[in-house]
């Protein structure tokens, strides 16, 4: 028996918004510790890893490990039936072929119940090594979304450079080019870019903006985003989900041929 209660539907809604454009179907792996999901996009250049800790949820129980095969689009549609503030329970029996959703309104005067058919998904689980990155940049998630959106009007790829001066995003296209630079300036001032950079080596890498655009769908989950880079390894983009967990995205760099 698996059952998880969220005080508000909004976290689940935001998690689905942050994953559904990248992944069609995914196994939600539930254990005593919590809920984990790992899935690649259909072209296998990026990977999303979600972790929600059971002990940080309103209530959580999972006696036996269970993999729930979920069509992300269907789950998104069902969650749209919940108000943001609805208490939300998701539940599945050990041998179930459905997941049950219960939405309770704030005043407890309305209860909705939905069942979603589960799928058999043959998923490939990859081991992600603990990695010491050359550069880790913490910045406003809104600012990152804005930069990705702005540079997408110029080109398909972004060159990210991190050095002791700060971080620079650059794009080139047929009609022109653009760069956005943020100085490393940890400051308490309102209105400053307020980024922090943890740097051991300067790095310069290229990535497809199309995937970064998918990643920025997670911005409502967190005010901050962290970008971790090292030469010749995938970029890691992490959004914390309060104290409950995180969503991490990995993207293979574009290599100059």
């Amino acid at each position: 028996m698996f059952e998880a209660t969220f005080n508000q539907a909004s976290i689940l809604k935001q998690v689905l918004e942050a994953t559904k454009d990248l992944v069609n179907d995914a196994n939600w792996d539930c254990s005593a510790e919590g809920i984990a999901l790992q899935a690649m996009d259909s072209s296998h250049v990026s990977l999303v890893s979600l972790s929600l800790r059971g002990d940080e949820l309103a209530s959580y129980r999972c006696e036996n490990q269970i993999s729930l095969g979920i069509n992300m689009n269907t789950m998104t549609k069902i969650l749209k039936c919940a108000e943001n503030n609805d208490r939300t329970i998701i539940r599945a029996d050990d041998d179930a072929d459905v997941m049950v959703f219960v939405f309770e309104s704030e005043g407890r005067d309305k209860t909705s119940k939905y069942e979603m058919k589960l799928m058999d998904i043959d998923s490939e689980h990859l081991g992600i090594p603990e990695q010491e990155y050359s550069a880790t940049v913490q910045m406003s998630s809104k600012e990152f979304s804005r930069i990705v959106r702005d540079l997408s009007t110029i080109g398909e790829n972004v060159e990210i450079t991190v050095d002791k001066e700060g971080i620079t995003f650059g794009a080139k296209g047929e009609s022109g080019s653009g760069t956005v630079s943020l100085k490393s300036n940890p400051s308490v001032d309102e209105g400053s870019s307020n980024i922090t950079i943890d740097l051991t080596d300067s790095v310069k890498l290229n990535f497809a903006l199309r995937y970064l655009t998918f990643f920025t769908k997670a911005a409502p989950l967190s005010d901050n985003v962290s970008l971790s880079l090292s030469a010749d390894v995938p970029l890691m983009v992490e959004y914390a989900i309060g104290d409950v967990g995180f969503i991490r995205y990995y993207l293979a760099p574009k290599i100059d041929d």
Partner: peptide, 14 residues
């Protein structure tokens, strides 16, 4: 021209 390797090639099969 840029090449992009599969994300699989960076991570081991678990």
């Amino acid at each position: 021209i840029y090449k992009q390797r599969s994300i699989r090639s960076y991570f081991s099969a678990a």
